[in-house]
Design a binder for these strands. Structure first.
Length: 206
DNA sequence: CCATGATCATTA
DNA sequence: TAATGATCATGG
C-alpha cells in the first residue's frame, strides 16, 4: 500500500481545481444522489479518492496521518463564505475527559488538516466545483488556537460536571459539540468547526 | 450494527 | 438567515 503524504495529496487535489466533482464522482464509481438515494458523504469520498487515498482512512481512530475535509461554500453578495459547519472528529467521552486539548484527536487532526473548498449550489449538488485546496499548520501558541482550546476546555468541563448528555451545539465560540449519529435512535457527538472558524482558516491559508 | 463521510430539515 | 439537531449512504 502506498503512503500518501499531505504534500502529495495536495498536489493531486490541485490537479482537479475548478473541475466538477459530480462528474469525477461518476468516473470513480461513487454513488451520488442519482440512484434516487441520498448519499451525503459522497463529496468527501471523492476528495479522498482524488487525493490518492484508499477509501478507508476515514475511520482514522488514531489520527496518525492528516485529515481531508471539504467545506461547502456559497456566494453572498459577491463574497465566498462557508455555507455550513464542518465535522472535525467524533467525540469519545472517556478520552475527552482524560486528555487535554493538545492530547486530543481534535487537535491532532486540526493541526494536520487539508481543506477543500467546494462550491455548492442548492440541494441537489448539480454543480460542485472544486474551488480551492488549502493545507494548514497551526502553532500551539497561535492566538486562534488558544481560543479554540478555551472552547475545548469549556466543553470538556461541561462533560465532566454535567455529563455527556448535557452537551449541545450551542457550546463553544469556534468549535461545537454537535450530535452526529447513525441516525436511528443511536446518538453520538462530534466536534464541529463553526463557519466563522472555517472562514478564518481560509484567511490564514491564503 | 456502528463509525464516518457531510448535508438536510426544522425552528427561532 | 442562521443555528442546532437529526438523518442517510457506505464500508468493515
Amino acid at each position: 500500500m502506498k503512503i500518501i503524504t499531505r504534500t502529495v495529496a495536495i498536489k493531486n487535489l490541485k490537479k482537479h481545481l475548478g473541475q466538477d466533482l459530480r462528474k469525477l464522482a461518476l468516473e470513480h464509481g461513487i454513488t451520488t444522489y442519482e440512484t434516487g438515494k441520498q448519499n451525503k458523504g459522497w463529496k468527501g469520498l471523492v476528495l479522498e479518492r482524488l487525493a490518492g487515498l484508499q477509501t478507508n482512512i476515514s475511520k482514522a481512530p488514531n489520527g496518525l496521518s492528516w485529515e481531508l475535509k471539504s467545506v461547502a461554500f456559497h456566494t453572498v453578495k459577491g463574497e465566498l463564505v462557508p455555507k455550513e459547519t464542518m465535522a472535525i472528529t467524533m467525540i469519545n467521552p472517556e478520552e475527552l475527559k482524560a486528555h487535554s486539548f493538545f492530547e486530543s484527536h481534535c487537535w491532532a487532526k486540526l493541526k494536520a488538516i487539508v481543506f477543500c473548498a467546494v462550491e455548492w449550489d442548492g440541494k441537489n449538488a448539480e454543480s460542485g466545483r472544486l474551488l480551492k485546496v488549502a493545507s494548514l499548520d497551526f502553532a500551539e501558541d497561535d492566538e486562534l488556537i488558544q481560543e479554540i482550546k478555551a472552547d475545548y476546555d469549556f466543553i470538556r468541563n461541561k462533560l465532566i460536571t454535567q455529563g455527556f448528555e448535557a452537551l449541545t451545539g450551542a457550546d463553544g465560540k469556534w468549535i461545537q459539540a454537535r450530535t452526529k449519529g447513525p441516525g436511528h435512535g443511536s446518538i453520538s457527538r462530534a466536534f464541529y468547526a463553526r463557519t466563522g472558524l472555517v472562514k478564518k482558516i481560509f484567511e490564514i491559508a491564503s
